[in-house]
């Protein structure tokens, strides 16, 4: 029976991911090179933002992955709690540092872009603030994984933290919105107006095409990194188990 749960077997997971990993990794490299080169060298300047518009090809995909990584960790945590598949818990652990790096990239590129455009590196704007809070959640999550010695205990604790954290992250998002209306422009990439052809507000086609390639590249990069890091976590777990058995005699 072909079922997705087959891949919950660590051996099967390593075998399969070994086979697909090169494809995904090279796909990520190709998409990122094409998207970034296209965006960097072959798109015009924006009439208001000048050449800083080119930062969008990193900023937007990184911000997207920062949120999606947490969503993936939430799903993996739920799967671990319900079905007790170790691969799922380890995948959540593997994704956290990648998500944290994406958050830092989104914050850093945003700050560098904000300096000439808004005249400040940092503003306590809802989106910026939410990302800072998201980064703190990533740090806490990873720190808890590192602090608990027993693997299953750590998986349970972090899974529950991930669920509770998700609720509070959403609450914070709305609280921060309430607290300050903000400077950041709305999400304009996927806005309905983009399809209707409202050229004032949306990201115009010249910028959108390479941006979508970059987004695909970031998604593939994330998947490749998570697969690789999950393999590493599976091996680390197996090694701890072997060493423990050896010590028992």
């Amino acid at each position: 029976m072909a079922s997705i749960w087959r891949y919950a077997n660590p051996k099967k997971f390593i075998e399969t991911s070994d086979r697909v990993l090169p494809v995904i990794a090279w796909g990520a490299v190709a998409a990122l090179v094409v998207g970034l080169v296209w965006g960097f060298f072959f798109t015009p300047e924006d009439y208001r933002q000048g050449s800083t518009v080119k930062i969008i090809y990193i900023h937007v995909p990184a911000a997207m992955m920062a949120i999606n990584a947490w969503a993936m960790m939430l799903v993996a945590s739920l799967i671990w709690l319900v079905r007790r598949h170790h691969v799922s818990a380890l995948a959540a652990r593997a994704a956290a540092p990648v998500g944290a790096v994406m958050t830092v990239i989104a914050l850093a590129t945003g700050a560098i872009w904000g300096q000439p455009m808004w005249g400040t590196w940092w503003a306590w704007d809802p989106r910026l603030t939410s990302f800072l809070i998201l980064f703190l959640f990533y740090l806490g999550y990873s720190a808890l994984w590192a602090a608990v010695e027993d693997d299953d205990t750590a998986a349970d604790l972090t899974a529950i933290l991930c669920i509770v954290g998700s609720v509070f992250a959403l609450l914070s998002r709305y609280a921060v919105n309430f607290w300050n209306q903000g400077l950041h422009q709305g999400a304009s990439v996927m806005r309905a107006g983009a399809i209707a052809g409202d050229t004032q507000e949306r990201v115009s086609n010249v910028f959108a095409a390479p941006l979508f390639v970059c987004m695909a590249g970031f998604v593939l990069l994330f998947v490749a990194l998570v697969l690789l890091r999950t393999q590493t976590e599976i091996r680390a777990r197996r090694m701890r188990a072997l060493l423990a058995r050896e010590r028992m005699g």
Binding site: K54, I55, I58, H59, A108, T109, I112, W113
Partner: peptide, 9 residues
């Protein structure tokens, strides 16, 4: 600005 953003990332 642009180069440092790309560099950092």
């Amino acid at each position: 600005t642009v180069l440092s953003a790309y560099g950092v990332s």
